[in-house]
Simulated scan of single mutants.
Amino acid sequence: MQRGKKKIKEWKLKDEDTRRQFEVKVQQKNNRNRGGWKQLSENVLEAAKEVCGESTGHRRRRRETWWWNEAVQRSLQEKKRAYKRWQRTQNEEYKREYKEKTRQAKREVARAKRLALENWSEELNSSEKQKEMFRIAKQMKRESKDVMGAKYIKDERGVIKINTEEILGRYVTLKTC
């Protein structure tokens, strides 16, 4: 797979703890390296890479979910290990263990989603979060709309014309009628 340009995950700076870590790193780097604007910008970029991390550079976008946490990660890894063990051995006991791990993983995902949604709802009291919610709602509305207008025309028999000359010929015919 082709790799694109790596990008800094600057969205992580929305978290207060991460933002504080970033500020401390920038201060440390600026205290060590006193220089001009170029040095300052390099220090900021280095601190951002260290604190926030970088994308893998994959062109295919991998979304990070808003509810994902370490417990979900651990639960899904356990489920995956149980599945591989069951597939290797074809043992019924390992199959039951895998099914139990699957149920646990589903419960963990549901718990994480519920907690994240509760946290998000509590934060809606601030005007900044309300603006974010309305921005997301507008985006969802735009994405769900059908595209209006068509870039094709039909002839007298109802066959769609794709060729530009045929479309223009039909358009001229309609105008003269």
Rank of each mutant, 00 (worst) to 15 (best):
R3M: 13
G4F: 00
K5C: 01
K5A: 03
K6W: 01
K6H: 04
L13N: 01
K14R: 02
D15F: 01
D17T: 11
R20Y: 00
R20H: 02
Q21Y: 00
Q21I: 01
F22E: 02
E23F: 01
V24R: 10
K25P: 00
Q28E: 15
K29H: 08
R32T: 15
R34I: 15
R34F: 13
W37C: 07
K38I: 07
K38S: 14
Q39V: 13
E42R: 13
V44F: 08
C52P: 15
C52K: 13
G53W: 08
S55R: 09
T56L: 05
R59S: 06
R59T: 09
R60A: 14
R60L: 10
R60Q: 14
R61A: 07
R61M: 11
E64F: 05
T65P: 01
W67L: 06
N69W: 06
E70G: 04
E70K: 09
E70N: 06
E70D: 08
A71G: 03
Q73I: 09
Q73G: 03
R74V: 15
Q77C: 05
E78L: 00
E78Y: 01
E78G: 00
K79H: 03
K80V: 02
R81H: 04
Y83P: 00
K84F: 07
R85S: 10
W86A: 03
Q87A: 03
R88W: 02
R88I: 02
R88H: 04
T89L: 05
Q90H: 07
Q90N: 12
N91H: 04
N91G: 02
N91T: 03
E92I: 05
E93Y: 08
Y94C: 09
K95T: 11
R96V: 07
E100P: 10
K101V: 14
A105T: 04
K106S: 09
K106H: 13
R107F: 05
R107V: 12
A112M: 01
K113C: 07
R114S: 11
R114V: 00
L115I: 06
A116H: 03
E118P: 05
N119I: 03
W120K: 11
S121Y: 08
S121V: 12
E123T: 10
S127M: 10
K129Q: 14
Q130L: 15
K131C: 13
E132K: 14
R135Y: 10
Q139R: 10
M140F: 14
M140N: 13
K141Q: 11
K141S: 08
R142L: 12
E143C: 12
E143S: 13
V147M: 12
G149T: 07
K151R: 07
E156C: 08
E156A: 11
G158M: 10
K161P: 02
N163K: 08
T164I: 09
E165L: 14
E166C: 03
I167W: 00
L168W: 01
G169C: 04
R170K: 07
R170L: 09
Y171M: 08
V172C: 05
V172K: 12
V172T: 02
V172R: 10
T176H: 09
